[in-house]
Nucleic acid binder design. Structure first.
Length: 852
DNA sequence: ATAGGGTTAG
């Protein structure tokens, strides 16, 4: 135990250095007055008490000696007592000794050794002003005094001053020893003074510290903290001797540079070498395991801590709680939290952010109020968690409360807080508010801050504003990283500037920035959303060539591309990837798969996927129900509804839209009315526009025009796309194309911004084979800046289903498809099958029904 | 000489 404590050199060299300075005139007087036969304190005994921190006992021993003898205390005694106070950082006791030295110690305080010892004492106790004064009074400061001053400045975070001290020490021709060098290196790494640190490295080797484990360990630490890991490794590997602290420095360096995997490997290696880890090693392991969500490794770290009998202090506790939160094991984190006796604000914050990351916003806020009850004050970390909770839970008022709290408590200049506030307003579409907060931070904007603002613009499709900021940040010497580029690309995609997005994608690579999974995935999503499904799928192949594997989000983007292309072939390919790589069929992926299959024409495959999902959420049910609706399968949709009720899943508005729409498509009149009744009386839900729309369609299919108008006027619901579609369907059934055109003009006047109206109109024209009119509507949409592609029909050619944008005359197969559609329409009419063309959704062409 | 928490992109 004791050997772990650094032994100050003063103590080691005590006998000679102690007697030396007081030899001249006055020391001889002592010798004459107090001959050696008189009783003395047993010095080793006193020294051992002081070393063990048994200050009280040490004082008792001295007091006893004084009462037994009228002799004044020898300077060694004061020295030992002071040393005890240094170990214990016992300021009041040390001050008493200082007072005694001044009062009784005759001229001891002029003794250089005693002066240095006192200086060290004040320095170790953090008394900057006193220490500086004493330092000034020393006529020729020695290595120990310099070391004390430099160490004190380091401890107080006065890194510049520490380095100034180091330089002054050299100028005073006092040679730094192996105690000063680590402190100087520490100051260098805090200031990121790489050149200075390298200089010290050279100096240390020249001075013969090339095998001193203290100096070399701190060099490993310095290089690691300055992100020069190569040099850290070099020092580490060339060291003649390494101890656990060297290993820890290596662990910390890797963790500092985000090399979490390397941390796990190093820890493993260290154990193989038989090095017993310390709490530092374990904290580091836990932090990296948390970042990697490496469950087994983190748990092993916990086990090692328990086996070593480590006390659960706040540092170890926080590492553990952080690990369990990041691993998603919030209950384990709670359990540790409850076991901790002396929780500090870090521990509280960890639980709060753990809940936020887990989406348990309610629990996070409850924990915050408990914090206040236990007299903790929110700090900037608590507030960032609360602000991101507000963004996640779509609670702008909570965000505003948090923002005003920050302003009132002067936390709003904190960079992390400011960034999260910018993000908050960005998510809510309040770009101007976001910009105002961003502009308040003028001089110290970091990369994250710039990226957050660029992302706020991107999120809202303000691509040119984002680009301006991207240039401005570089003018202010902040170098963009992959996140900056990704946000820029996203902004273009959100604004439908596909070419610009692709140009930026090329540009980032020209600038030596490698696209990551998020770059690829944003592009895949963006291309699919903008109708470039084919290009999105090509990008997927490029991404694989670049050695990047798709993750769930990329998969969903790809499925979206397949859906928009109505490409069953590609959809099955992606499904194959999921199966081959044994990706979990999460509700997120399953929803997209089901949607893809049902929209690509295969409701059976959609239902197969549904059966395989182990965790069936409301969304999973809804997507299959609307798939059944699209395919006119009311019976199956209603069975699914019964099934979800049995599983105690509460239906929402989307569920009923799907159910009603399924009934409308299938012409299931009685079932439709029943479902509406269930919606209102059992589930207490008020029907919305889209529900009435479905109902109108259902009535229309039964020729009950009067009832449609009756229902509409009874609800005072404004005409919307769904209702419009039904009315237009009615017109078409009655061959009343004139009225339908009247209606169209009227509705476009009423709701010039409603995309759905245009889509419905374009669909109507497309289905009637009136491509010119459909094209006109599409042009109107383009002028209005609307993105949806209307007038889609599906055509099965060979093994593949294509989506056909009716009015898109640029489609390479335009002529063929138009001809096929007309042919189909005619065929169906011949067999008295007009209903399949009248469906609300897109015309669905069953496999093989198409004549070429 | 080494050690814990918060902010940005799909």
């Amino acid at each position: 135990m004791a050997s772990l404590l650094p032994h100050p050199p003063i103590l080691r060299s005590l006998p000679s250095s102690f007697t030396a300075p007081i030899k001249p005139v006055k020391s001889s007087t002592f010798a004459i007055n107090h001959p050696p036969k008189k009783p003395q304190i047993h010095l080793p005994q006193l020294s051992s008490l002081c070393e063990k921190g048994l200050l009280r006992e040490a004082f008792a021993l001295v007091t006893q000696f004084q009462s037994e003898s009228d002799l004044p205390l020898a300077p060694e005694i004061y020295g030992e007592l002071l040393q005890g106070c240094i170990y214990d950082r016992a300021l009041p006791q040390g001050q008493q000794i200082h007072a005694r030295i001044l009062k009784f110690g005759s001229l001891f305080h002029r003794n250089e050794y005693m002066k240095t010892k006192l200086l060290i004492f004040y320095a170790k106790c953090g008394c900057l002003v006193v220490a500086e004064e004493m330092f000034r009074q020393q006529c020729r400061p020695n290595v120990f005094s310099w070391a004390a001053m430099i160490g004190l400045r380091c401890q107080l975070g006065l890194d510049e001053e520490a380095l100034v001290g180091f330089v002054e020490m050299l100028e005073a021709a006092c040679l730094p020893d192996n105690f000063v060098i680590p402190n100087a290196l520490k100051a260098c790494s805090s200031l990121q003074c790489i050149g200075f640190g390298r200089g010290i490295h050279g100096y240390a080797l020249k001075m013969g510290f090339g095998s001193c484990v203290y100096v070399l360990s701190s060099l490993v630490d310095f290089y690691g903290k300055c992100t020069i890991l190569g040099d850290a490794w070099k020092v580490f590997e060339e060291m003649p001797e390494r101890n656990v602290i060297t290993w820890n420095a290596m662990l910390v360096g890797n963790a500092h540079n985000g090399l979490n995997l390397e941390v796990l490997e190093l820890f493993h290696h260290m154990r193989i070498e038989g090095i017993q880890p310390t709490r530092v090693s374990i904290s580091c392991l836990l932090s990296s395991s948390a970042n990697l969500e490496a469950l087994a490794e983190g748990k092993q770290g916990h086990a090692v801590a328990i086996l070593m009998g480590l006390e659960l202090d706040n540092i170890l506790g926080s590492s553990l709680i952080n690990f369990y939160c990041k691993a998603g094991l919030i209950e384990d984190a709670e359990c540790l939290f409850n076991r901790m006796a002396d929780r500090d604000v870090v521990i509280w914050n960890l639980l709060v952010s753990g809940y936020v990351q887990d989406g348990q916003i309610g629990h996070a806020l409850t924990t915050c109020s408990q914090m206040i009850q236990e007299n903790f004050k929110f700090d900037s970390v608590t507030l960032t968690s609360i602000i991101s909770a507000a963004a996640i839970s779509n609670d702008l008022s909570l965000g505003k409360v948090a923002h005003s709290y920050c302003i009132r408590n002067n936390l709003d200049s904190d960079l992390a807080i400011a960034s999260s506030i910018v993000d908050l307003y960005g998510t809510f579409g309040r770009v101007d508010n976001a910009r105002r907060v961003f502009d308040l931070i003028t001089d110290s904007r970091d990369l994250v801050m710039w990226n957050t603002m660029i992302s706020a613009y991107a999120h809202n499709g303000l691509s040119s504003e984002g680009l301006n900021l991207f240039y401005q940040m570089q003018l202010e010497s902040v170098h963009p990283n992959v996140i900056s580029w990704n946000s820029l690309i996203l902004g273009f995609l959100r604004n439908s500037q596909v070419d610009e997005a692709l140009a930026m994608f090329a540009e980032m690579q020209n600038n030596g920035v490698h696209p990551n999974i998020i770059t690829w995935t944003s592009l895949i999503h963006g291309l699919a959303e903008n109708g470039y499904g084919r290009e999105a799928i090509n990008l997927y192949f490029q991404m694989q060539t670049a050695g990047i594997r798709p993750n769930p989000t990329s998969i969903v983007g790809l499925l979206l591309a397949c859906t928009n292309l109505s490409s069953l072939h590609n959809g099955r390919m992606i499904h194959g990837y999921i199966t081959r790589h044994r990706l979990v069929l999460s509700p997120y992926i399953a929803t997209s798969l089901i949607d893809m299959y049902s929209k690509c024409g295969s409701i059976d495959l959609a239902a197969n996927v549904f059966r395989m999902v182990s965790h069936k959420t409301l969304t999973v049910y809804n997507v299959l129900i609307s798939g059944y609706a699209l395919h006119g399968k009311a019976k199956e949709a209603l069975t699914l509804y019964d099934d979800m009720c049995e599983r105690r899943i509460t239906p929402d508005g989307f569920t009923f839209t799907g159910l009603l729409s399924a009934c409308a498509h299938a012409g299931a009149f009685a079932e439709g009315i029943r479902i509406l009744t269930v919606m209102v009386s059992v589930h207490d839900q008020t029907p919305q526009k889209e529900h009435y729309g479905c109902l109108a369609a259902l009535l229309a299919r039964h020729g009950r025009i009067k009832q449609v108008f009756g229902a509409l006027s009874a609800t005072s619901i404004a005409l919307d796309a769904y209702t419009l579609t039904s009315l237009l369907t009615l017109c078409k059934e009655n061959r009343d194309i004139e009225f339908s055109e009247d209606l169209s003009g009227h509705i476009l006047d009423l709701e010039p911004d409603n995309v759905s109206n245009y889509v419905a109109l374009a669909n109507l024209y497309a289905r009637s084979g009136r491509w010119k009119e459909a094209s006109h509507v599409r042009m109107l949409m383009k002028q209005g800046g609307m993105k949806t592609n209307p007038g889609c029909s599906w055509i099965q050619t060979g093994g593949e289903t294509h989506v056909f944008t009716a009015a898109d005359q640029s489609h390479p197969q335009f002529a063929d498809i138009a001809r096929a559609l007309l042919c189909l329409d005619k065929q169906m009419k011949n067999i008295g099958c007009s209903s399949s063309i009248d469906k609300l959704g897109q015309t669905h062409v069953n496999q093989g029904s198409l004549c070429h």
